[in-house]
Design a binder for these strands. Structure first.
Lengths: 210, 210
DNA sequence: CAATTATTTAACGTATACATTAAAAAATTC
DNA sequence: GAATTTTTTAATGTATACGTTAAATAATTG
């Protein structure tokens, strides 16, 4: 399972490409049985599509797919933000969230996009974790896997995320003071703007499917 | 896959029970291979848990699990309601939604709880379909599978759903007039109340895990 | 006898063999 | 020669065989 996932994330199997079970088995140095099991699970997670006798097709997302996914991510992360605020965490418990904002700011100063992206991911992961709803964590994690490639592609096309950092800081403050309404709203707007930017970037650069 | 699902939904494999792959294979009249494939997929959909050498355990949900699932259902269905309102559907296009409200009202009049439950399910399905987001449809469908048993158990414990019918009608109106804010809010409250009632019923009747 | 180690067992994970079937290719018919 | 039917091919879906390993049991040791 993880071996096939790794192949996909490494870009060895490009979006939209087709692969027979036997090819994948050979490439991975195993028999068809574990390959089949992996493809079925990854299909139910949206990373590929099993098309009997035509091979498995690695998912390629259109701008519209991206919009759908971001709609869900926006909604569920915003709920997580609101739940995190309601939980009245101590500063201690929010330290990782805080640390991520600090790191994002430092990365922007240093013009380090990869560093910023890592810190941004850490912030969102921690936010969802603080929300405390395991189902949200699972879904968000799946969708993050699906849009991973698109984010990587656009990381160097976008402007340096200064506004984004302000949003993160404001969200941190809202959660720290237990303002769930504000937390939800801040994050909702933040994610909606991120969605619009991503889709625009993909369109502008003619990336029809990624 | 469907054979195993059917066993679970039929209650042949009660929540919390453990089953070896070989037992399931025999019960289903097939070999271990398709059983394994099914268990892996159903695990990723939350219907069971694969515990090597201890058998697969059919998921049993606590009140807290139920809260988590309903939080997500509430959020995503509310988003779907808002999207449906934004889409400015014609009365024609909303006819199935309308029909479901009519059927729910007739069922309540006739004291027909099963009929009401079917119409209620049809209403929610159609609502999500009208939202137009395929990802929401998939997630909501999965979660509905997971809470199916709990709903069936509580159907005859709850009061006749008169208030619920009013909500549905109000939601229909909001969608018909394109009021996305109102649609979202009506449905959000509706689902939140449904969640609270379900959890209370389970607790009152001492159903710790279903 | 309690604790530890060795042995056995059985369930799983993977490989292989085979049956099924959709698609492709070849043969036939009009 | 185009259309239809038949045959062949190959990829999948399923069954079976086998190796691996975690758990259970038995044996050993102090």
């Amino acid at each position: 399972m993880d071996a096939l996932r790794a192949l996909i994330f490494a870009g060895e199997l490009p979006p939209g490409s087709d692969h027979l079970e036997s090819e994948l088995a050979e490439k991975l140095g195993m028999s068809r049985t574990p390959v089949r099991e992996a493809t079925l699970v990854l299909e139910s997670q949206g990373l590929l599509e099993v098309r009997p006798r035509k091979g498995v097709r690695i998912s390629a997302l259109s701008a519209d797919d991206m919009r759908e996914i971001y709609e869900v991510l926006t909604e569920l992360e915003s709920l997580a933000a609101s739940l995190a605020a309601e939980a009245r965490y101590s500063e201690q418990e929010l330290s990782r969230l805080k640390a991520a904002t600090v790191e994002m700011e430092a990365s922007v100063e240093a013009n380090d996009r990869e560093g910023w992206a890592r810190a941004d991911a850490a912030f969102h992961d921690e936010l969802v974790r603080l929300g405390g709803n395991k189902r949200i964590q699972t879904i968000v994690s799946n969708f993050n896997d699906q849009v991973r490639r698109a984010r990587a592609l656009t990381l160097h096309m976008r402007p340096m995320p200064r506004k984004s950092n302000e949003d993160h800081r404001a969200l941190y403050e809202a959660i720290a003071r237990g303002d769930s309404t504000d937390a939800r709203q801040i994050h909702w707007r933040h994610r909606t703007e991120a969605k619009d930017m991503l889709i625009n970037l993909l369109n502008q650069h003619g990336l029809r499917r990624v």
